[in-house]
Amino acid sequence: KLNEKEKELCQMVRLVPGAYLEYKSALLNECNKQGGLRLAQARALIKIDVNKTRKIYDFLIREGYI
């Protein structure tokens, strides 16, 4: 299910792929509902370490998901 970049992200932030996909889905759904997504909203949405949230958020922006 994951592409190579997503696999690298999961290894870097030490997330299991299932958890990453869950977080990605939640962030994309919220982004679609709101018409955009700020980091503060992402942090409130997924209750994990803020540094991990930041890396996931930055990755999703860089890859054009949000």
Rank of each mutant, 00 (worst) to 15 (best):
T53Q: 09
Y23M: 12
E6T: 00
K5H: 09
N29D: 12
A40Q: 13
L27P: 00
Y65C: 11
S25H: 14
I66P: 08
R62K: 14
E8I: 06
D58A: 05
E6L: 04
Q41D: 15
G35D: 09
G35W: 00
G18L: 10
N3A: 05
L15F: 00
I61H: 11
S25C: 10
E8A: 13
K24A: 00
N29Q: 12
V50R: 13
E30D: 07
Y20K: 01
C31L: 06
I56A: 02
G64F: 01
K33C: 06
R38D: 15
L15H: 02
L39T: 04
I56C: 01
K5Y: 02
I46Q: 06
L60G: 04
C31M: 08
L15C: 04
G64Q: 06
N32P: 07
R38P: 09
L9V: 03
G64S: 06
R43N: 14
E30S: 08
L15P: 03
K47N: 14
A19V: 09
R38T: 15
S25E: 14
R14F: 02
A42E: 05
A42M: 09
A19Q: 14
R43T: 14
C10H: 00
L39P: 09
N29C: 08
D49K: 03
R62A: 13
I61M: 14
E30T: 09
G36T: 10
Q11D: 13
L45C: 10
G36P: 07
V13N: 07
E6H: 01
M12F: 02
K33P: 03
G35I: 03
E4D: 12
L2Q: 06
C31I: 07
Q41W: 02
N32V: 11
A26W: 05
L15Y: 07
M12W: 05
A42L: 06
E30P: 05
E63V: 01
P17R: 03
R14L: 02
M12T: 13
G36C: 10
N3T: 15
L60A: 02
G36R: 06
G64E: 08
I48L: 15
L27A: 00
D58Y: 02
A26L: 14
E30V: 07
C31Q: 07
K47P: 15
G35P: 06
L28V: 15
N32I: 11
I48M: 13
N32F: 09
K55D: 07
M12I: 11
E22L: 08
Y20G: 00
Y65D: 13
Y20C: 02
E4I: 08
D49Q: 05
I66Q: 05
N3Q: 09
K47G: 14
A19S: 09
I48T: 12
R38L: 13
G64M: 01
R38S: 15
K33S: 07
L60I: 01
A26Q: 12
T53W: 02
L27G: 01
L37F: 04
L21R: 04
S25A: 14
E6C: 01
Q11E: 12
K47E: 08
A19E: 15
I61C: 13
T53K: 08
V16W: 07
A40H: 10
I46F: 07
L27V: 05
Y20P: 03
Q11W: 00
G35H: 04
L45I: 13
V16R: 14
K47A: 12
G64W: 02
L9Q: 01
L37H: 04
R43W: 07
K55S: 11
C31W: 09
R62V: 00
C10T: 03
I61Y: 10
I48W: 07
P17E: 08
I56N: 02
Q41C: 05
A44I: 03
I66N: 04
E4N: 12
G35C: 06
K24Y: 00
N3M: 03
D49S: 12
D49N: 11
Y20Q: 04
L39C: 05
G35F: 03
L15M: 12
I61L: 15
L37R: 03
N51S: 13
R62T: 11
Y20E: 00
L27E: 01
L39K: 03
R14N: 15
I46G: 10
S25R: 14
L9I: 07
L27D: 03
A40N: 11
K1T: 10
L28R: 09
I48Q: 14
G18I: 08
V13A: 12
Y57D: 07
K1D: 13
G36A: 08
P17Y: 02
K33A: 11
A26Y: 05
L27Q: 03
I46P: 08
F59V: 01
L60D: 06
Y20D: 08
A40F: 06
Q34Y: 12
M12D: 15
G64P: 05
P17G: 00
F59G: 02
K7S: 12
E63K: 02
N3G: 08
M12E: 15
A40L: 04
D49P: 13
G18T: 13
N3C: 10
G35M: 05
M12V: 12
G18M: 11
L45Y: 05
F59T: 00
I56L: 09
G35V: 03
Y20M: 01
A42D: 06
I46E: 07
L37M: 09
L28K: 07
Y57G: 04
L39N: 07
E6D: 01
L45S: 07
C10R: 01
E63R: 04
V13I: 14
K24E: 00
